[in-house]
C-alpha cells in the first residue's frame, strides 16, 4: 500500500520535474502516467502488488476528487449569469462538436484500417 503510493507519487513528482524542466504545458501527473506505463511494461507487477491495489482504489473513486473544484461553480454564478447565453451555448455546442468529431474520426479511421489490410 505505502509502496504503491510511493510509486504513484514518485512518478507524479518526476513528471512535474520534467514538465518544468522542458517548459511543457502538460501537467506533471499526465507525464507521470506515461512514466508509470513504462514502469508497468518493464516490471509487469501482479494484480496483488501495491501499485495495482492503490491504483484501483483511487480510480474506483476518481469522481470524488472533482467535487471540491466543481463546488466552485457557485462562487462564479454572478459572472455566469451576466453572460449566460454565450457561456452556456458555447460550452454545450462546443462540447457536442468535440464529442461528435472525436467519435466520427475514430470510427472512420477504425473502419478504414481493416479494409486496407483486407485488400
Amino acid at each position: 500500500m505505502i509502496r504503491g503510493l510511493l510509486v504513484l507519487l514518485g512518478c507524479q513528482l518526476v513528471g512535474e520535474l520534467l514538465a518544468a524542466l522542458l517548459g511543457l504545458h502538460v501537467p506533471g501527473p499526465v507525464l507521470g502516467m506515461v512514466l508509470l506505463l513504462g514502469l508497468l511494461t518493464w516490471r509487469r507487477p501482479g494484480p496483488a502488488s501495491g501499485v495495482v491495489r492503490v491504483s484501483e482504489g483511487l480510480l474506483r473513486h476518481l469522481q470524488l476528487l472533482f467535487v471540491p473544484a466543481g463546488a466552485g461553480v457557485f462562487s462564479s454564478l454572478t459572472l455566469i449569469g451576466a453572460s449566460a447565453v454565450p457561456l452556456v451555448a458555447g460550452l454545450v455546442l462546443s462540447w457536442g462538436a468535440a464529442l461528435l468529431t472525436a467519435a466520427g474520426v475514430a470510427l472512420l479511421l477504425l473502419r478504414w484500417r481493416p479494409a486496407k489490410e483486407g485488400a
Partner: peptide, 13 residues
Amino acid sequence: ALLLGPATVALAW
C-alpha cells in the same frame, strides 16, 4: 483534490 495527481498517474494501470 490533492489525490487527483496520483489518481491521474494511476490511469496507467
